[in-house]
Computed example of a mutant assay.
Amino acid sequence: MPVDARPEHRQRAYRVRLEWGREGAELLAAECAVVIVVDVLSFCTAVDVAVGRGAAILPQRSSDGDAAAQARALGVQPAGRRDGSGPSLRPSSLVDLPPGTRLGLPSPNGATLCATVAATGTALFAGCLRNASATAAAALAVDGPIGLVPAGERWPGGTLRVAVEDALGAGAIAAALPPADLSPEAELAAAQFVAARDRGLAAVLAATASGRELVADGYAADVTLAAALDTSVLAPRLRGGLLQA
């Protein structure tokens, strides 16, 4: 969003604000003390699984050219292809990650937005359904406004595709924050989450467009991992350029 965004678009009347995608990340990083990027399928879920194993993640823009070479230059293990056998963007590929691993993980949505926020120096968390309550509590401990950024997906032409799963992840975090602090955008995301939770998060995620894509490609286990609400007590935060506990 351009720097001259209208005051009404900045949600300054509320401590907890929500905006989508790259423009939303840029706006909220300039306005908030802490930004939570939410990419449920699958970057932020992968981060949560990895950090739960005692690893740390370098978020990389997918447009940075040779991400593997960049990771090696920084002394970080590069991620493999999603259809390979090693650690990758698939959360299920990280469940046995050795503690102490430092992994470079590129993605066009969550990782790219995390790198965007990281460049501003604003406190950054990677949020998802698995760590929603823990992330909300950690964000509240930072004095100042909280920005929620559901990452969304991309259409083939590069424009933003609003992704239900990211609205639900952001809503789960919003639902764990004080209701009086929520902007209408955050409040209604919380309501979406509650409705999906009541229907069954695993079934809802698997039925979304993104979930169906992963299931069709053979990655149903990643959807199941992503739907595991509040199974993590960690809130991955950017420290020293890496997302870690």
Rank of each mutant, 00 (worst) to 15 (best):
A180W: 00
A5M: 05
A50D: 02
V149Y: 06
R22G: 07
I57A: 12
A46M: 04
R102E: 09
P2V: 11
R197S: 10
N109F: 03
L27S: 02
A67V: 02
A139W: 03
D96F: 11
D166W: 00
A33E: 13
T159D: 15
I146G: 15
L177I: 00
G127T: 03
S62W: 09
R61W: 08
Q192T: 11
A235W: 01
A226R: 11
H9Q: 14
V51C: 15
A29V: 06
L113K: 08
R81N: 13
G21D: 12
P98V: 11
P156A: 08
A191L: 04
A25M: 06
A151I: 13
V95N: 09
T116D: 09
R22N: 10
A227W: 04
D4R: 01
Q60D: 09
P87W: 02
W20Q: 14
L18P: 01
L89Y: 02
A115T: 06
A134E: 02
D217F: 06
P178E: 04
L148I: 11
R12E: 15
A71M: 01
T231C: 04
P178K: 06
V164C: 05
A163D: 00
T116E: 13
A134L: 07
D181T: 07
E187I: 03
A195E: 10
A141H: 05
A79S: 12
R22H: 14
A73W: 07
R61L: 09
S63E: 12
R212V: 06
T231N: 02
A29Y: 04
R161L: 02
R12S: 14
G100M: 12
A118C: 08
G110F: 01
A163N: 00
A119M: 03
A138G: 12
A115V: 06
C128M: 07
T122M: 06
P91L: 15
P7T: 03
Q244F: 07
S232A: 13
G121F: 01
P236C: 05
P99H: 08
D4S: 07
G80S: 14
V40C: 08
S93V: 14
F43C: 14
V38E: 00
G147N: 14
G100Y: 12
A68S: 15
P98E: 11
R212K: 11
P150N: 14
Q77E: 14
R22E: 15
L129Y: 02
A163H: 00
A123S: 07
G104R: 10
V47W: 01
Q60W: 04
V16Y: 01
P145R: 13
G157S: 09
A13T: 11
A30R: 02
G86P: 01
A209W: 07
T231A: 05
A118N: 10
L27W: 03
L201W: 02
R15T: 11
A111F: 02
A220Q: 13
T224P: 04
R22T: 10
H9Y: 13
A196G: 05
S183L: 00
E31I: 06
A175W: 00
V204N: 04
L140R: 13
E153D: 15
A56Y: 01
S42H: 08
P2F: 08
P178S: 05
E187Q: 12
V233D: 12
V51R: 05
A134M: 07
W155K: 13
L168G: 00
A207V: 10
A69F: 07
S92H: 03
P178Q: 06
S88P: 01
R237E: 14
D222A: 09
D143P: 03
E26I: 05
G169I: 00
A56S: 15
